[in-house]
Design a protein around this nucleic acid. Structure first.
Lengths: 136, 136
DNA sequence: TATTTACCCATTGACAAAGTAGGTTAATGT
DNA sequence: ACATTAACCTACTTTGTCAATGGGTAAATA
């Protein structure tokens, strides 16, 4: 197996896309999103914590509260959302934050670095707006 | 975390590169490679099974036996080696072999497909020979 | 003031990856 | 011949991360 992007990152994208499909000023309760997307509300809460702390969404407490995007959909790249929720987009463990440096010179290191660059570049070129149904 | 390429795939690359650094006709015992690379011989055995079955290396039993490449280093792409040992190079679970098809239309599917294509294209453009120390 | 909802913390369960163990088969050198 | 070497095979154990759950507290509203 492989799977560079886990459920956590994919769920984050689904929540963000769901929010992007709502009226911009509306506060959307997480329960509503969870139901609509068929995902566990509890699990989504842990993801929202990350998104909220980093200012990608704004959360409002209490009755009538919920979440809303803090920017316009076209101002979010998938790279930003995924790097945040996945921790990083490193293709191999040795490129992750705080990895133990492997034996040098490592002949494959340049390959992984280039790969990470390519992946990041692509994901930074796609925005939330590109995921909306009516984006042609 | 993320890590598209696991230890299994990276070890496979190290073994293949090690073999590529040896005289082409020489049969190299796995024990020697494991020692040189500082990896578990037993674990490498499970990887060699895959490489051998698929004809990437030729194994020879008995005393004086070992492994050798079955082609020249420049005739192996990293993509081929990694797809084999990792099972696939799918960036997300839903693109893996035999995954349960997710709800359609999935707005992110095209993104993952494009990403898989980009990653594959790059890894297919690098060969074992490119990893050899004296490749400038 | 009851209700709703975000937010916080700890734990559980499932599963895959990494590594281990002990064998059998095949080839060689002596 | 036969001891030795090394590939090859099957199964098990360990370990760690991810996904998900449970049970709360804090804040806002109607």
């Amino acid at each position: 197996m492989a799977a560079m992007i886990s459920s956590r990152g994919r769920y984050a994208l689904r929540v963000m896309t769901d929010l992007a499909g709502q009226p911009p000023e509306r506060l959307v309760p997480l329960k509503e999103i969870a139901d609509r997307q068929g995902l566990s509300r509890k699990y989504l809460e842990t993801i929202m914590a990350t998104l909220s702390k980093n200012g990608l969404v704004a959360g409002q407490h209490g009755k009538g509260g919920g979440y809303q995007l803090s920017r316009r959909p076209e101002e979010y790249t998938l790279g930003e959302i995924l790097r945040l929720t996945e921790g990083n987009l490193a293709p191999v463990a040795c490129l992750e934050e705080g990895a133990v440096p492997c034996a040098h010179p490592c002949p494959t290191l340049p390959v992984w670095e280039k790969l990470e660059h390519i992946v990041g570049e692509y994901l930074d070129s796609v925005t939330l707006a590109d995921l909306l149904p009516n984006s042609f």
